[in-house]
């Protein structure tokens, strides 16, 4: 369906990752209003309770904020968004390095490859 989620991993976790990515990449900007749980559940093709759980997780992390009157917005704390962006980048780098080591590359060789890619 619309969001191409894997059914063999918890769906709420995948939604969290996806919304995080949309925030750090600027698709949702600081202070932007987010769609309602129901709207987003229908777009994603997931159970509304699952979407609710994902939103709960994002609220706990502080990335999105619930306002009594106007629904949910993206945090205006840009420092936090940058931090999450760095964290995600770190995860990607680690995964990349692991793969490269599996292929038998040493750090120097990896660096050389990255340089030559420019």
């Amino acid at each position: 369906m619309a969001w191409n989620l894997d059914n063999d991993r918890p769906i709420y976790a995948q939604i969290v990752e996806r919304i995080q990515l949309q925030i750090v990449s600027g698709i949702y900007k600081p202070g932007d209003k987010l769609p309602s749980v129901r709207e987003l559940a229908a777009v994603a093709g997931v159970n509304p309770n699952t979407m609710q759980k994902a939103f709960g997780e994002l609220e706990r992390s502080g990335l999105i904020i619930t306002q009594r009157t106007s629904g949910r917005i993206v945090t205006e704390n840009e420092h936090m968004i940058t931090e999450i962006k760095k964290e995600l980048a770190k995860e990607h780098v680690e995964r990349f390095l692991e793969k490269m080591r599996e292929l038998g590359f040493e750090k120097k060789e990896i660096m050389a490859l990255l340089e030559s890619d420019k």
Binding site: M1, A2, R38, A41, A42, V43, G45, N47, P48
Partner: peptide, 14 residues
């Protein structure tokens, strides 16, 4: 099927 499932979610009373 996709439309029907989306409709079910969108109309679903919590």
């Amino acid at each position: 099927r996709d439309y029907i499932l989306r409709t079910i979610i969108a109309n679903f009373n919590p």
